[in-house]
């Protein structure tokens, strides 16, 4: 099997990763995050004062928002190679990745709309700001499901040479657990669970960044091994 498509999708990860970092650094109010305790007037004033930068970074996010989908699909393809009795976890992973991607797109639309009309009633700008932060922070259930499906598939991989080593399963479980607090940003305006808090923001963003970086190298190794293994099979078939 040709793995060129998988390698191209994998190569997009550092490209989109770098663009994400650029977006993050140029977007005011995202890094560090806006506080949920700001009043409607403060939020409206913030968006009014930073229209250009927010617009630029959010248009960038609009374009690259679901840029990791090709990467997640490479993981799906690798899951389908595993020695699992069925592809149930691979399909579940695919469905969860699709649902999760939608939410970031929604957050971006709310942010862009918040700066689209700076003289809007501050209450409405606050509403758009809240919707954006909720959609950006709290739908951790999807990535958690992805990670747990991948972990289970790895634990059940009965191939003599498993697609991913076992520690990748543990790594996925730990990453899933570290993202759990994000869901509770729906409840708190202050403290570690708030959308700008130590757990819901800093821990979640750090975990996600590290997760993508580590999985990039893990998947790269898996593809290399797939190439080597299939080359061996071909060579054996040719010599037989």
């Amino acid at each position: 099997m040709n793995t060129r498509d998988q390698r191209i999708c994998l190569g997009l990860v550092p490209v989109f990763g770098a663009l994400f970092l650029i977006g993050f650094t140029i977007c005011p109010g995202l890094f560090p995050p806006l506080s949920p305790t700001m009043t409607a007037e403060q939020v409206a004033a913030f968006y009014r004062d930073h229209v250009g930068q927010i617009r630029a970074s959010m248009i960038l996010f609009n374009l690259i928002g679901i840029g990791f989908i090709p990467f997640f699909m490479v993981i799906v393809v690798q899951m389908m190679r595993m020695g699992n009795p069925s592809r149930a976890f691979a399909y579940s992973y695919l469905a969860a990745a699709v649902s999760g991607g939608t939410l970031f797109a929604l957050a971006d639309l709310a942010w862009l709309n918040a700066v689209a009309r700076p003289d809007r009633d501050p209450q409405l700008t606050l509403l758009l700001n809240d919707l954006a932060w909720f959609s950006f922070t709290t739908p951790v259930g999807f990535i958690i499901t992805q990670n747990l499906c991948l972990a289970l598939a790895i634990y059940m991989d009965a191939l003599p040479e498993p697609v991913f080593p076992r520690w990748v399963g543990h790594f996925n479980v730990v990453s899933a657990l570290l993202m759990v607090p994000g869901a509770f940003a729906l409840l708190y305006k202050t403290g570690p669970f708030a959308w700008d808090g130590a757990l819901s923001y800093w821990l979640r963003i750090t975990t996600y960044t590290l997760y993508v970086a580590v999985m990039f190298f893990v998947v790269r190794t898996a593809i290399h091994r797939q190439v080597a293994r299939e080359g061996r099979v071909l060579a054996e078939a040719a010599s037989a």
Binding site: Y93, V140, T145
Partner: peptide, 8 residues
């Protein structure tokens, strides 16, 4: 938010 992914 935490559990809807299970539907997948």
């Amino acid at each position: 938010s935490l559990t809807l992914g299970l539907a997948s």
